[in-house]
Write a protein that binds this DNA or RNA. Structure first.
Lengths: 140, 140
DNA sequence: TGACTGTGGATGTATTTGCACTGAATTGAT
DNA sequence: ATCAATTCAGTGCAAATACATCCACAGTCA
């Protein structure tokens, strides 16, 4: 097998595993009346920056589209999960900060998300679904 | 590190790699005036089944939402990439078949998609981004 | 200072998504 | 054979998405 074929198989495997876990976790969250995973990522990232974070930075960290992200942040602020204050040193910009409610929601989401990661990864590994990834990455 | 932490790190790594490649490949496709990757997956799958495939099967293979998928198939049929004929043995259902144009578009998409998989996986592997996945999968 | 270019973020708009529901056809139990 | 339960696929509708564009401000260079 060529290196490209190896990488291609790894890509397919990786893609499958991630899609399944992502979709299942997301459904479980919605069923529990909690937000979806893109909200989770924002909350998690904001928890790493207690001093706040500029939307642009966050957006590029998470590889989100700018305009969608702008509206997503607006909705999250409306729900009280984060605050959006003017940046002191740049009058164009904002600073995002997670709220206590945001932390609480993230924690509740994590319980569910975590269990899906755990079970999903476990079964992918047991089923050998990630073998191709392993092979590819050992070719380095 | 506990097994769970290992799996969690693997999940994060896997998710990052897949998001970056997926997004970049999709942008390149759109820039080339070609359809997005969910269309690609449908076309690829249909090429594996020259006798055609029922929408339900395809939808569960690809883990798509049923109603979104129904409309996606409609759009793809409008573009002439596939045909949607009544199923012979089940008057509720349809049979999807790829068209020559569908094959051609898929081939053109593959040139671009392939290069992104190749470069993306290559650089992820070189950067060690998949090491956590490797470790997790070797814990089996 | 003033003009020029670049950046941060919001918004108008068309397209796409996902949920709930529907109608038609099939399956299975009795 | 009948009738309830299930399956397949499509649709109305509200919400989310992506693209292009816009405005306000920043940075740069003369």
């Amino acid at each position: 097998m060529t290196d490209f074929e190896t990488r291609e198989r790894a890509w397919i495997a990786l893609n499958r595993v991630r899609t399944r876990i992502y979709r299942d976790a997301e459904r479980a969250l919605v069923a529990a009346g909690l937000p979806k995973l893109n909200w989770y990522d924002v909350l998690w990232e904001l928890e790493q920056y207690p001093d706040g974070l500029r939307p642009v930075r966050l957006q590029e960290l998470l590889l989100f589209d700018q305009s969608s992200f702008s509206r997503q942040v607006m909705r999250m602020a409306e729900e009280g999960l984060l605050t959006r204050e003017p940046a002191e040193d740049d009058r164009r910009g904002k600073v995002l900060r997670i709220t206590p409610k945001g932390r609480e929601i993230r924690a509740r989401m994590w319980v569910i998300y975590r269990s899906h990661i755990d079970r999903g990864m476990q079964s992918a590994i047991e089923a050998g679904s990630l073998e191709d990834v392993e092979v590819a990455s050992r070719r380095r």
